[in-house]
Design a protein around this nucleic acid. Sequence first.
DNA 1: ACGCCGTTCCGCTCAGAGCAGAACGCTCAA
DNA 2: TTGAGCGTTCTGCTCTGAGCGGAACGGCGT
Lengths: 105, 105
Amino acid sequence: MGEIVSLRRTPDPAAPVERTEPLWRELVGGELRGRRLERGERLVDVAQRAGVSPQYLSEVERGLKDPSSEMLAAVAGALDLTVRELSTRAARGGFSAGSALCLAA
Amino acid sequence: MGEIVSLRRTPDPAAPVERTEPLWRELVGGELRGRRLERGERLVDVAQRAGVSPQYLSEVERGLKDPSSEMLAAVAGALDLTVRELSTRAARGGFSAGSALCLAA
DNA sequence: ACGCCGTTCCGCTCAGAGCAGAACGCTCAA
DNA sequence: TTGAGCGTTCTGCTCTGAGCGGAACGGCGT
């Protein structure tokens, strides 16, 4: 704890690194990819319909970026989901980008 | 449509303004406030436990800011919720900050 | 009057959202 | 073997807005 850590947007939880639960962006990212794959769609097509770049959508799906609420709505819309439906599926789906990646077969 | 609108983080949906569905930040913000009030807690106490400023938590609850995933986890934790629980409640709760504010009695 | 609470306003720093171009790695078909 | 298609990673970039602190405001109760 002797370090000065600039934590601007990533607050230091009580246990700094040991995170047993996925972050929101990991949950929602995993669900977006799961949904896209179960619909058999390509990343570039969904990205185009949502109005985002393919690189960026790739990062969002992998839980690397926190999309704005409008972006989230656009991507959800491109997958024929409402934000509510997406949230529900993200919360209870088996998909979670990042270290705890579960693939429901 | 003659305007040049700089849309960096707020993509222009097909219908630019007519939004019938709340954004994620509105859903989650409403749920956070609902949860806090049903626990009878003050904004400053939750903010302190979560490690954020009261002004900022006020804005988050009112759906004015998109919190990072870590922030969301911290605030959820301060209200004894997991991110999954929060997502589920946000998706199906009657709380939504912003224009479509419903108070479940 | 005062205190408490939440909200708004203002100004600020700088983290990171989101992008484009290029390169990489993998799979599959010819 | 090569080449195409796909997704991912890397790099560098612009500039938005996250998140803050201080101050002021408004509502409510004593």
